[in-house]
Design a binder for these strands. Structure first.
Lengths: 196, 196
DNA sequence: CGGCGATTCATAACAGTGTTGCGTAGGATC
DNA sequence: GATCCTACGCAACACTGTTATGAATCGCCG
């Protein structure tokens, strides 16, 4: 039953796909190496050969999640008006989270006990800031935004988006709360707060 | 070894205390019913009598966490100027989170797999909004803030605070980032965005 | 005041988990 | 074509939360 000398890439993808499905269907708790291996037709040891362990398998899902996030952010059409553009990115952020809620959980909550993102994963997550920072930098340069380090403003905008989505997912928002409307208003008000 | 007919309140407190210590020391992953029971000098079944199971035990820690949070929020001295006061509450929010990081993890990340807050716990968490909402409501009434539902503004402010703290804990912020300064600036800018 | 029913909690077993030695099949290398 | 190396199957290990059983003892009612 040996495989080629290099890791079996097809098996790796099958494991990753199925792991994503299991998590999407029943949450992170439902991801068991035994079940995963059985579904894919291999054994748990394969996960250790290919990834190193369960945390590293989840780590692969983590980078996949940020890859998708990044893709959706890049696809947002921009106008050049900073408040509008920051609001659009924020809305896309929420749409992305709603599209892959369980991936979002892996990225931003510690829903898989042993898993801690490593340095490479953290670098990747910080890359999410890039489009935000570009917009902010231009706005500061043009004097539309106050003269504060673009990084600070960008992080602030990311914070609102992330915080509201996080509260929504946690069930911390009031019942019968019109999340979508409030979310957009909050994004816009926050961005406006940086106007010069 | 029977205990009084009513639950042994002292044992309940000892379990809760020790559980908090274990989590504070080594994170949520380190909370095992066996170790907890051994440390306290009882058996795992006591947890089932007193709480119902591990999720419910964690639920008790969840409400304890929000109780402390609420206490710290109430202790914040207010000035009557909404932007300033909202900023102060936001800073207190971060201080609270840093003071009890593992309790914070229980409250806002799903770090204990089986645990989902029940309705009562959710009501409690939403009570965190109360002081924010009072400030906002007054500011809207006085015409200092724009005429938007106070709930929406309050949730927005909570979102920034929560989001930034959450990103900080997740390691999503840039390295060598002056979190404290940026955090305060972001809170202030966000609140200012709601000025009429 | 005494006995009964109810309930807490100890003991031990169960089902499940991630992880790890061991063994082996079979491509890669010379 | 012989040899090495490695991915991976099997089975065991240590651990988890949970639960069936049973003993001890309290609150309650006559």
């Amino acid at each position: 039953m040996a495989r080629p000398r290099t890791h079996d890439e097809a098996l790796r993808l099958k494991l990753l796909d199925r792991a994503g499905e299991l998590i999407t269907a029943d949450g992170a708790k439902a991801l068991s190496l035994r079940k995963l291996a059985a579904d894919v037709g291999t054994s748990t040891t394969a996960v250790y050969s290919l990834f190193g362990g369960k945390p590293e398998l989840v780590g692969a899902l983590y980078v996949e999640g940020f890859r998708r996030f990044g893709g959706r952010m890049d696809a947002v059409g921009l106008t050049g008006e900073p408040v509008e553009d920051l609001t659009r990115l924020g809305l896309a952020y929420r749409v992305s989270a709603l599209a892959d809620p369980h991936l979002y959980a892996i990225m931003f909550t510690r829903s898989v006990p042993g898993f801690e993102p490593n340095d490479e994963a953290n670098d990747l997550s910080r890359a999410t800031l890039k489009p935000l920072e570009d917009i902010v930098r231009a706005a500061v340069a043009e004097g539309v935004f106050v003269d504060v380090a673009p990084e600070v403003i960008a992080v602030g905008c990311w914070g609102v988006a992330h915080g509201l989505v996080s509260l929504e997912f946690n069930g911390n928002l009031p019942p019968e709360f019109d999340v979508a409307t409030a979310y957009e208003a909050a994004l816009r008000a926050n961005a406006s707060g940086w106007l010069a």
